[in-house]
Design a binder for these strands. Structure first.
Length: 273
DNA sequence: GGGCTTACATGATTTACTTCA
DNA sequence: CGTGAAGTAAATCATGTAAGC
């Protein structure tokens, strides 16, 4: 869904703008407005509305690890949880309680099958904002957010897990693109330098080479950057071999010049809490 | 216009691992 | 040091939606 890509700023396609701004991929603004179509489909109704009592009880420990399955939605079969409220089923608004279970389970096909929960625009926006502030949640924050959004803490937790995973995936693609471009530029640079070496060798074999060569004393090298400062401008008509900074010839930019800002792999690894 | 297929987005689950008390 | 709980990443599944035919 194209529009929802924008919602999360998580388009996995590597558009040129993505490649140019890799470090901002995590900071994409949340979508201000999802499509009207979606709004119509959702009917402006929060399909995930769940009674507060459910999660307030089930998340008593403040944590809901996927492995502590007794406390989460996977209890009782592969997945199953009741959601009371208003639902959109087959395009119709249905009111009441919906038994939510894995669609693939044997006993749940047909009308009783769980509709996939979709977070509302507002819920997604709040989660996005929260994710921008901190991409992990402590139990307190999780509970507060769940309460604010009328979701179960487990849903908030899952949302953050998925968001982290997909952000990382996106960043990995950006990093990959960065390295690819780096490789391409270095290959090009290598090709250019080899050509230059060939030309110099050809010149060296030429009998006039030393006559046209600038005395080495006119070249000064910066000790820090190891670049050679060119001598004063040549007299008009005079041809000289001039040492110059790499890539200064032919207006060739250095390999890194056209690359985006620091990719994520140059940053320090994230600290675990 | 409706049905079918396909691709994609995304919520949810499972498993393995790490950290910490 | 061994153990269990908690948290997370990674892989994967399942479902809803849009687009193309």
């Amino acid at each position: 869904m194209l529009v929802e890509k924008e919602d999360l700023g998580l388009s996995l396609s590597l558009s040129s703008s993505d490649a140019l701004c890799p470090l901002q991929s995590n900071l994409m603004p949340p979508a201000t407005l999802p499509p009207e179509q979606r709004l119509m489909l959702m009917g402006g109704i929060d399909v995930n509305r769940a009674p507060m009592e459910e999660w307030e009880v089930e998340d008593d420990a403040g944590g809901s690890s996927p492995n502590s399955s007794v406390s989460n939605a996977s209890a009782g079969g592969k997945r199953g949880f009741g959601v009371a409220g208003v639902f959109v089923v087959g395009g119709e608004v249905v009111e009441g309680e919906q038994e939510c279970s894995r669609g693939g389970s044997d006993e749940e096909d047909g009308e009783g099958a769980r509709k996939k929960l979709r977070l509302s625009k507002e819920q997604s926006a709040v989660l996005e904002e929260s994710f921008k502030e901190h991409n992990t949640l402590n139990p307190k924050q999780k509970l507060a957010l769940a309460k604010q959004l009328n979701l179960r803490p487990r849903q908030v937790e899952v949302w953050f897990q998925n968001r982290r995973a997909r952000t990382k995936l996106k960043q990995t693609e950006v990093d990959c693109e960065f390295l690819k471009r780096c490789c391409e530029n270095l290959t090009e640079e290598n090709r250019r330098l080899q050509k230059e070496v060939q030309e110099l060798r050809a010149l060296k074999l030429s009998p006039h080479f030393y006559m046209h060569m600038t005395p080495p004393t006119t070249l000064t090298m910066c000790p820090s950057c190891e670049r050679v400062t060119p001598p004063p401008p040549a007299v008009a008509g005079e041809k000289r071999l001039i040492a110059r900074p790499i890539n200064a010839a032919a207006g060739v930019a250095p390999p890194w010049a056209s690359l985006p800002l620091r990719p994520s792999f140059l940053d320090a690894p994230p600290q675990r809490h």
